[in-house]
């Protein structure tokens, strides 16, 4: 009976959400952003080594490098330098005296740097593809870092949107005063809360997996990714319930859930830019752990013990938040 009612509430919410612009937008925008990431950043299956060279400076060298890596040509040395300074890994090959020097931003992978050096030496030694006796099978870095970061951020955004969706659905019940009508049916309050949560969780899981597939991350462990999305979405759902109960209109509900962007953005910035010793200041944030776990999964370097540790921390934080919010949620749904 309880499962049946959870399902009925879930189906109703999904159906109604497709009728309203704002909720429909929340369900579709992650997929649009995933396509955008594909358009704006290099594909996962592209070579992960990019060279920037000066156009017409040495066409023969550019053609040689193009056989082994992705080559971008620029009109002058300044533009090459600008390109190297951009977010993703690009190595500049610039003329100096009678030879060339390798220009890097400084945060490139050692493997990329070694590859650039090797390729330059091979070119200067006039080694041709036909001379090669060995074959490069794998290069180590399989995922462009910019793309990985964007997809990771998108996964966190999806969990947040799931919270917003819950807030909208609760707000709808509140404005139509329909909770009291549900309360005089055999549907228990737990079934009602679970039915609503299932909607947010389904949207989060579906959108996350779809976004991973759209952005080309189909080789990552989708089960691990789903677990991280599941755990990080719990917090968003709790916040969504509270904001839905406390808000009087859609804009207020969406606006208050948006406050979660602050700890989310802080957690991402903390993980990406703060040195190891200071990262302890972000340990309180479930978004930090979710971002860290996603990073591990997207890099295909995730191990189950570490993942379980990260998920355990996220769930423990969510559990503490639930203990604080559950009485208010139950009271608000009376």
């Amino acid at each position: 009976m309880m499962i049946k009612n959870i399902w009925i509430i879930f189906i109703r919410d999904i159906r109604v959400n497709t009728r309203e612009f704002m909720t429909l937008y929340m369900m579709i925008i992650p997929l649009v952003l995933a396509v955008g990431i594909n358009l704006l950043s290099p594909g996962i299956n592209d070579t992960s080594v990019n060279f920037a060279l000066v156009e017409n400076e040495n066409p023969e060298q550019a053609a040689y490098f193009d056989d082994f890596a992705h080559v971008e040509l620029f009109s002058d040395q300044q533009r090459v330098e600008d390109r190297v300074r951009s977010r993703d890994d690009v190595v500049g090959i610039l003329p100096k005296d009678n030879g060339y020097y390798i220009m890097t931003q400084g945060n490139e992978s050692e493997l990329v740097l070694e590859y650039a050096k090797l390729l330059n030496v091979l070119y200067e030694s006039d080694v041709q593809l036909e001379d090669a006796r060995s074959e490069i099978i794998e290069f180590g870095r399989t995922v462009p870092p910019l793309k990985k970061m964007l997809v990771n951020m998108l996964l966190l955004l999806i969990s947040m949107l799931a919270g917003m969706l819950i807030a909208m659905n609760i707000l709808e019940e509140k404005m139509d005063q329909t909770v009291s009508a549900i309360n005089v049916t055999p549907t228990s309050r737990s079934a009602f809360i679970l039915g609503k949560s299932f909607t947010g969780m389904f949207v989060a899981l579906f959108s996350s997996i779809a976004c991973l597939l759209i952005t080309g991350f189909y080789n990552v462990n989708l089960g691990q990714a789903a677990l991280v999305v599941f755990s990080s979405t719990i917090l968003s759902l709790l916040i969504g319930f509270i904001q839905g109960i406390n808000s009087d209109d859609a804009m207020e509900a969406a606006g208050s859930v948006k406050l979660m962007f602050l700890p989310m953005a802080g957690s991402i910035a903390g993980y990406e830019f703060v040195t190891g010793n200071w990262q302890i200041f972000f340990y309180w944030s479930p978004f930090y752990w979710a971002y860290r776990a996603n990073d591990m999964i997207l890099s295909k370097s995730g191990t189950w013990p570490r993942l379980i540790l990260y998920i355990g921390i996220i769930l423990a934080i969510c559990g503490a938040v639930y203990t604080l919010l559950a009485p208010r949620i139950r009271k608000g749904l009376q």
Binding site: K4, N5, I8, R12, V16, R19, E20, E172, M175, D176, Q177, T178, S180, A181, I182, V184, T185, P186, T187
Partner: peptide
């Protein structure tokens, strides 16, 4: 609640659903 019916003073139906959908939804909860 399978045995009781309740008509509220303040109308409380889902405004984004049709009349028929409203009743169909509630009928499935019993």
């Amino acid at each position: 609640f399978n045995k009781i019916g309740m008509s509220f003073e303040q109308s409380n139906v889902y405004s984004k659903m049709t009349a028929k959908e409203n009743l169909s939804f509630y009928s499935k909860l019993f």
